[in-house]
Design a protein around this nucleic acid. Structure first.
Lengths: 236, 236
DNA sequence: ACCTGAACACCGTTCAAGT
DNA sequence: ACCTGAACACCGTTCAAGT
């Protein structure tokens, strides 16, 4: 109970203790877990730290989630649901390109807002309401655009997987410890700018441009490429 | 020193002990780490377990790698180097589509062979020789195809990132514990096949097809989409 | 019914000590 | 020069016990 020298913010003893009249709930746990990871990154999401955040014994969370994996998936589904809810309600469902672009855009925002959760769960199936609504929207949009069920499924997955993969990769990079982040970020400059000219002429020549391309540029390029692919299928 | 009931293969006391005449080396450590993760997955890669594999005290590895991160990056670079070396030496460097497809294909094989390492490091910069040779090959290929330096860099990163992101996502899924893997794999069938018809008509209707699409189909679709994008840039 | 707290079997990493 | 082994500060999770 004596003050640990961990990088915990202000006070120590049950700073956020709930009063006994509002019992722990899955919703509250997810909310606090998202607060915590958003503020302090993926490595802050430990059961002990989360218990502290909730003013509760670390193991109390196990009354609401079987294990940490269930908790992470619940958080991910919440993030997906928030992205869904952030979609413009006046979206024209006939404009399939517009729907796909809007989904891609909100997913990007979601993974920027919650990189830690995204990096932990982007490749998982949550099975939750957020995911279900997103799947329904995309499949119905592609079916309405004129794709056969077989094609709609292939292109739904191509779109969703490429989007999730790109967001997940970015989120993974973003939720590294800051020391590792700097190490990776500086690599292009540190390494590629000083490669031997004879052995790596192209890398050397392009090094100054390598740092100019943004993650966002790349994301938009991939998204557009997949949209063009779907377009070609619809027309051919 | 007494036999632990961990899921360790055969014997216990220094099964693979090296004789003192071949000292530990970075190469040997990387090789054994790849063996280990390939056989037993990402969660087997602990310093203690690796020490056991090498017949050496766990902390001896710290003499060759500053920390576990350095070790993982070295392993990743070796995997990339092996993918590079597996490229057909008779590849026609004028045929940029052929080069890109070959690289995509070998990367896929590499991430299937070493999902654990891939999932740990696909979003990182290794700065090693494997990565450098791959970058050089792709940049020089795109430059020779006729892209300006600015365009070559954008399209190199679009291609490389989408490829790595897709491989990394697959690797992440593949290197989950088997119990979680089954949980996720069965989700489409368990969840989407029984969704309420009124609320999720499209998901329900497409559920039978969802399981038919393979990861490989999706990977090829994304790769082709990016190649088409580059093609359009070259012609437009 | 719900939460607590000790305990277990792990981690990565440091550092003084051994050879 | 290189490796060892104890130790430190963590993990997720279980389960008997408390209220």
């Amino acid at each position: 109970m004596s003050g640990e020298t961990r990088s915990v913010p202000a006070s120590k003893t049950s700073r956020r203790r709930r009063n006994r009249s509002d019992p722990l709930s899955s919703e509250l746990i997810v909310e606090r877990a998202l607060d915590l990871t958003r503020r302090e990154g993926a490595q802050a999401l430990t059961m002990r730290r989360l218990g502290e955040e909730l003013g509760v014994d670390p193991t109390a969370v196990y009354r609401h989630f079987r294990d940490k994996d269930e908790l992470v998936l619940a958080c991910m589904d919440r993030v997906v649901a928030m992205a869904y809810d952030a979609l413009d309600p006046h979206l024209d469902v006939q404009d399939w390109r517009g729907v796909l672009r809007a989904v891609a855009n909100q997913s990007w925002k979601a993974c920027e807002a919650h990189p830690a959760i995204y990096s932990l769960a982007y490749h998982r199936t949550t099975g939750g309401p957020g995911e279900r609504k997103m799947v329904e929207l995309l499949l119905s949009t592609l079916a309405r655009a004129g794709l056969s069920p077989r094609q709609a499924v292939l292109h739904y997955r191509t779109f969703a997987d490429s989007m999730l993969a790109m967001c997940g990769m970015k989120a993974g990079a973003q939720s590294l410890e800051t020391t590792l982040q700097e190490k990776d970020a500086g690599a292009w400059a540190r390494i590629y700018a000083i490669l031997p000219q004879e052995e790596y002429p192209a890398a050397r020549a392009h090094a100054p441009h390598l740092a100019e391309v943004t993650e966002r540029d790349i994301y938009l390029a991939v998204t557009d490429a997949v949209i063009s692919l779907i377009d070609a299928t619809l027309r051919g």
